[in-house]
Amino acid sequence: MTDSDGVGEGWDGDGDGDGDGEWLTIGAFASRSRLSAKALRLYDRLGLLSPARVDPVSGYRFYRPAQIEQARLVALLRQLDMPLATVKETVALDGPRAADAVEAYWSRAEERFAAQRTLVHYLRGRLSGRSSEMYEKFEVRTVEVPEQTVICESRHVLAPELTAFIGESLGRLEKAAQECGGVVAPPFVAYHSEVTQESDGPAESCLPVADAAAARAWAGVQGPAVTARTEPARRLAYARITKAQVQYPQIIAAYEAVEHWIEQQGLTIDGPCREVYFAEWDTIGPDDEACDIAYPVR
């Protein structure tokens, strides 16, 4: 006999027959809560929905009828594909706060679905051989960038952490620039390897400053992730994109458009790709130009 069919309803839980309330076996509780016995055992292990009593001898699990509502709530939240950890946090809240948590979760899910819908459109074009059509919306140009001193902060980050790293590191570098003669050109982020869900770069935030000696002195007293160097004069091939296009996967199409153009022109990529942020991010709209997707070339 398993704990899914163990002692029936009405057992008082301690074997003394005092009848202190109704108890439900895991099988009966699963039926009434619309959850499987397997799911109930998992939720018990996770501390999400524990039985009211576990018999110390047989190991049978017993639930109270009052737990049915919580179990049904768990089942409904799981139908939203809500992760178990988030479900656990949500069911621990009171009604209004739980409702707010569900709304916040679904808003994040809709944002993710919108990005995935865009990714599907991009993949359909790529897999159907229409990549060149997608590239046509990006105008690729070149610019000569003079030699410049940059102060930099690098970190190994995965895609979900990237936006926060860029904002925080550039903020720190802008403060440091006051000790290094001031900012002389827009900041940029160089990618020494891919940053994705599985690949962690590193990414390097860079800010051009005026005083090379001061920059080296400042970097010398920072941690190993902070450096100062002189970037040689170089030619960049770039495509200018809007704030909305910075979002994934539109930004990937921009990178590929620049790569495609470089190949067509018979040029060679001569360094890590970079994103040059020339606009005040917090003050521009989604359709305003915000960033250059660039590759050093020769």
Rank of each mutant, 00 (worst) to 15 (best):
R141D: 07
R141K: 09
T142R: 15
V143K: 06
E144A: 15
E144L: 11
V145F: 05
V145Y: 04
E147G: 10
Q148W: 10
Q148C: 05
T149C: 07
C152K: 06
S154P: 10
R155G: 12
V157N: 00
A159D: 07
E161Y: 14
T163P: 07
F165G: 04
F165L: 07
F165K: 10
G167T: 04
E168C: 06
E168R: 10
E168F: 08
E168Q: 14
L170I: 13
R172Q: 15
R172S: 15
R172T: 07
L173R: 01
E174S: 09
K175R: 12
K175C: 04
A177V: 00
E179Y: 13
E179G: 09
C180R: 04
G182L: 04
V183D: 02
V183I: 15
Y191S: 08
Y191I: 11
H192S: 10
H192W: 15
E194H: 08
V195G: 05
V195K: 01
V195P: 01
T196A: 01
T196N: 07
Q197S: 10
Q197P: 02
Q197I: 08
E198D: 14
S199M: 13
G201F: 02
P202V: 00
A203T: 01
A203F: 02
A203L: 01
E204S: 13
S205E: 12
S205R: 02
L207K: 07
P208H: 09
P208S: 10
D211I: 00
A212N: 11
A213T: 10
A213Q: 15
A213Y: 06
A213M: 09
A214N: 05
A215N: 12
A215T: 06
A217L: 03
W218L: 15
A219H: 05
G220H: 06
V221E: 14
V221A: 14
V221Q: 15
Q222L: 08
G223W: 05
G223K: 12
G223H: 09
G223Y: 03
